[in-house]
């Protein structure tokens, strides 16, 4: 499996926010996207996910077979928003995403155990703190399988222990042959990563 971008440009509201971005990622590889606010990190992730149109260049995902025909289908996207409904319980939220996204992996309860929310799975999502909401969103990455994880500030709102836990989760994903693209200001605790500096002259 391979995720590559060639000479990619991104636009936001008609203005080019970045241009000439290229990278190639194979299995078990991580790309850290860094740069100041407004450098286009989130835009880049949304373009890879297929949520924004490509302005120039192209993004290609290959080796996914019939199940993951394109980059959008092969990606888990963890954006600033968690994609959970406050009126449903944590478990109901995860059960929905597992059933909807398909490719089941862990059961929602197992995934919640890993992120340390196993005991409060019955609570409505709306009752949770910021960090707990983030951990629920991380659990979504575990209930259904996608080879590529697009993470936008994944550790925002997490405490130290949860950060370490999340690093563990990411390592497990990488060692199973996954690909991670993460936009972040904070070190994620991963070794041997490629780095893409945005907003620095390109």
């Amino acid at each position: 499996m391979r995720l590559a971008a060639e000479n990619l440009s991104g636009e936001r509201g008609g203005e080019t926010v970045f241009s000439g971005v290229s990278f190639a990622l194979g299995q078990s590889e991580t790309l850290l996207v860094t740069g100041p606010n407004g450098a286009g990190k989130s835009t880049l992730l949304r373009i890879i996910a297929g949520l924004l149109p490509v302005a120039k260049g192209h993004v290609a995902f290959s080796g996914g077979g019939e199940i993951f025909p394109d980059a959008g289908a092969a990606c888990h996207y963890l954006g600033h928003l968690n994609g959970m409904k406050p009126a449903l319980s944590i478990e109901e939220n995860l059960v929905f995403w597992r059933d909807f996204l398909g490719e089941e992996r862990l059961s929602p309860l197992e995934a919640l155990e890993i992120v340390g929310l196993g005991e409060i799975a019955h609570l409505p999502f709306g009752y949770l703190s910021t960090g707990q909401r983030r951990r629920t969103a991380i659990a979504r990455l575990l209930v259904s399988y996608r080879p590529v994880w697009l993470l936008d500030e994944p550790t925002a709102g997490l405490d130290r222990a949860s950060e370490a836990q999340f690093a563990e989760v990411m390592r497990a994903h990488l060692s199973a042959g996954g690909i991670i693209v993460a936009a972040t200001h904070l070190p994620l605790g991963l070794e041997g990563t490629q780095e893409l500096k945005m907003g620095a002259g390109n």
């Binding site: 996910a49 297929g50 949520l51 289908a73 928003l81 994609g83």
Partner: peptide, 9 residues
């Protein structure tokens, strides 16, 4: 709440 992105993806 961000669900729409995931539904579209």
């Amino acid at each position: 709440d961000g669900s729409l992105d995931l539904l579209l993806m």
